[in-house]
Amino acid sequence: MFINELNKAHFNLSELGVSYTDPFGNFMISSPYNIFINDRYYLFKNVGDYVTKFDGTITILLTKEEIQEIANKTFYEEGQFNVIDFLTFTVTEGK
């Protein structure tokens, strides 16, 4: 799991796929998923399935590649050193 404490982004890679919570509170998953939100159970089984939470953020099922692209663009704050490239999972050491 990769965590950016500065902007509260979380990226997780597992054998089931990837999940990502962006700095805005949206949650993305790449594999079918059951979740309890807004006092209801939801089954995410098709890419694009989503639910909007009471606070306006969303939970959505996307492809692994789409999540990686979003993470690559939003995981770091502007000016923050990019340690990992989420498209290639290449880690670069800081200076």
Rank of each mutant, 00 (worst) to 15 (best):
G25M: 09
N72T: 01
T88R: 06
N38H: 03
Y50A: 02
S31C: 14
I58S: 05
L6K: 15
F44D: 02
T57H: 03
F44P: 09
E15F: 08
I35Y: 01
Y33T: 07
K8T: 13
N4F: 06
F27G: 03
F27L: 11
K64H: 08
T63F: 05
G79Y: 01
T21L: 13
L16S: 11
Y42E: 07
F89V: 02
N46M: 02
V51N: 01
L87D: 04
Y41M: 13
N26Y: 01
D22H: 10
F11G: 03
Q80V: 04
A71H: 06
I37F: 06
K8G: 02
F81V: 06
T59C: 11
N72Q: 13
L43N: 15
L16W: 02
L6R: 08
K73Y: 00
I3G: 02
E69Y: 04
N34I: 09
F2R: 14
L61F: 13
N4V: 09
G56Y: 05
E15H: 13
I67H: 07
L6W: 03
V91E: 14
F27Y: 15
I84D: 01
L61W: 11
I60V: 15
K95R: 12
K73W: 08
K73R: 15
G56I: 02
L13W: 08
N38K: 05
E5K: 09
E78P: 03
E15R: 13
N7E: 11
L43A: 10
D39V: 00
S31R: 06
L13T: 09
N26L: 04
Y33G: 01
S19P: 02
Y42K: 05
S31H: 15
G25N: 07
N34H: 05
I60C: 11
E69F: 04
G17I: 10
I70V: 09
V47A: 01
N72S: 01
I35H: 01
I29L: 13
D85Q: 04
K45W: 03
N72L: 05
T88F: 12
T63A: 00
E5A: 11
E15G: 04
G17F: 10
E77N: 10
Q80C: 07
Y41K: 12
E77F: 03
L13E: 12
L6F: 02
E77G: 00
Y42W: 08
P23H: 11
L62Y: 02
L16T: 12
T90C: 03
V47K: 12
G17P: 10
T21Q: 13
I3N: 09
P23R: 14
G56R: 07
I37Q: 06
E69A: 04
M28H: 12
N34P: 00
E65S: 11
F11Y: 15
K45I: 04
E93G: 00
E65Q: 08
F75Y: 15
F2V: 03
S19D: 15
H10M: 14
F89L: 13
T57N: 05
T21A: 11
Y50K: 14
T88A: 05
E65D: 12
E93A: 07
E69Q: 07
T52M: 12
L62R: 07
F86W: 05
V18I: 10
L16I: 01
I35E: 10
F75R: 03
N46S: 15
E15C: 02
M1Q: 01
I37W: 02
F44Y: 02
K53L: 05
E78V: 09
I84W: 06
V91H: 12
V18T: 10
Y20G: 05
F24I: 00
N34R: 05
F27D: 14
E65R: 02
P23N: 13
